[in-house]
Design a protein around this nucleic acid. Structure first.
Lengths: 246, 246
DNA sequence: CCCCCCGCTTGATCCCGGTCAACCGGGGGA
DNA sequence: TCCCCCGGTTGACCGGGATCAAGCGGGGGG
């Protein structure tokens, strides 16, 4: 009953059942009891400073991470040293699933602003999902959605022109921010033009020019990293302009 | 003991424990007993004729499929009707994982030659993996590897020039065929130039021109769909030529 | 067996986006 | 406070790969 105050605090601090992101990370519609069994998922939290990496490609895999706050990019480095940004991750999203298959991480995860993640030792994830069906199902869905997301990026890179890709990127960002309670129309880009370009398969100069063009067309307002979306419908129209370039 | 001959035949025909592809689909190092529990994974087999689809994007999801023989492509269709090939699948590979997340398939799977798949109702996959740890682990690895594969394609599309992509494609095909006991250096392409182009983010004319160029450079011999690899090392060198074009 | 159609090849030209270069401006460190 | 550096913007030019077009050849259907 009476536990030391500090212990209580620690438990509360890492309790999924108390977390306001739980509808993003965890299955919904659970009873209070069920929710508490899930509190065992997270062993600790870990802060990652802007510019630091949560893990590197090649490192042994041991845990999944849920973003508590902050912003990450994932990058892949090819044999000859080229770096490709493969994704951006924000609060409530899961990191590290690439490591399950080969017991080491294949990509590097780097914080683009001061961030914090919940550490979920993978052995616990597997144990708990063997004994608790809703978690199992949820975990499978999260893995599958990552596959679907990646296929969406393949479509983006494989069949859209540069302006369509950037429009799709902005619409996607806006939607994900909205889902997290942020403004849908005004936000600060945490990544550089170069990182956006790498993700979208174009050069930073092209990203910059397209931002300027979108601004001329009154679709957005840009000042450095600050973006305000003026015409989301217009962006969606740019996205779906057909006439593939590849 | 004495079951009707037909029943025995049917059971044997769908028995994973007897399948020569099991080291591709299933966890390795299992006892005979353990293997037999896995025979319950597959409910039936299904033949798919060349040109027919196993499932379509938008259809409800109910099962995963393991390719028994044949060859498939997966395609994604965007809002405006553009089609993107997102992968090619051969014997021993798993199809349908995109459907888990949203309970419907997001892509369409089409046979590029007469094929057969093992049908694994997803409820059984989840049930069995709750009770049988090696299967759970294996299944998670398969999902994760699909994510890693997709990220590899993102790198391909995002940071490689056309000739590098095609070289990477040929090397990858050759490796997967070798793993299945086929010749590493001589094979028949099951897909058209257009499908290769869609997958690699380029036009069919570019694919054709590059095949011709590779032939001039004595890297390969091509006649229509027949390919013979003459210099795999040369192809790998083309792949890693650096000097990104995007 | 022959013919037709579809997939492939190859040439000519164009243009999107890459490359190179110069400049700008804001924020962080001394 | 000032300065420096790094990220961003913009212009000029170029080239890889798209587009348009014509011809070919092999395999499947009548």
């Amino acid at each position: 009953m009476t536990e030391p105050a500090l212990a209580t605090l620690t438990r509360l601090r890492t309790a999924c059942s108390q977390c306001n992101l739980r509808e993003l990370c965890l299955p919904v519609g659970l009873s209070a009891d069920e929710l508490q069994t899930l509190d065992n998922l997270v062993s600790t939290r870990r802060k990652v400073r802007r510019g630091d990496s949560l893990f590197y490609g090649g490192e042994p895999f041991s845990a999944l991470y849920a973003v508590r706050y902050g912003f990450f990019k994932s990058t892949l480095t090819s044999g000859d040293g080229r770096e490709q940004v493969t994704g951006f991750y924000m609060a409530g999203e899961l990191l590290g699933m690439d490591g399950i298959g080969g017991d080491r991480h294949t990509c590097t995860l780097t914080a683009l602003e001061d961030s914090e993640v919940c550490v979920m030792p993978f052995a616990r994830v597997e144990d708990l999902s063997r004994h608790f069906e809703p978690l199992q199902r949820h975990f499978h869905k999260v893995l599958s959605r990552e596959i679907v997301r990646d296929q969406g990026v393949m479509m983006l890179l494989g069949s859209m022109r540069a302006e369509e890709r950037l429009a799709a990127f902005l619409v996607n960002l806006s939607q994900r921010l909205t889902a997290r309670g942020f403004s849908a129309s005004e936000f600060v880009l945490r990544m550089t033009r170069d990182e956006i370009g790498s993700y979208l398969g174009m050069k930073l100069e092209t990203v910059s020019r397209l931002f300027s063009r979108f601004q001329e067309d009154n679709l957005i307002e840009v000042h450095q990293k600050h973006v305000r979306i003026l015409d989301i419908g217009g962006l969606k129209r740019v996205m779906a302009q057909a006439q593939s370039s590849t």
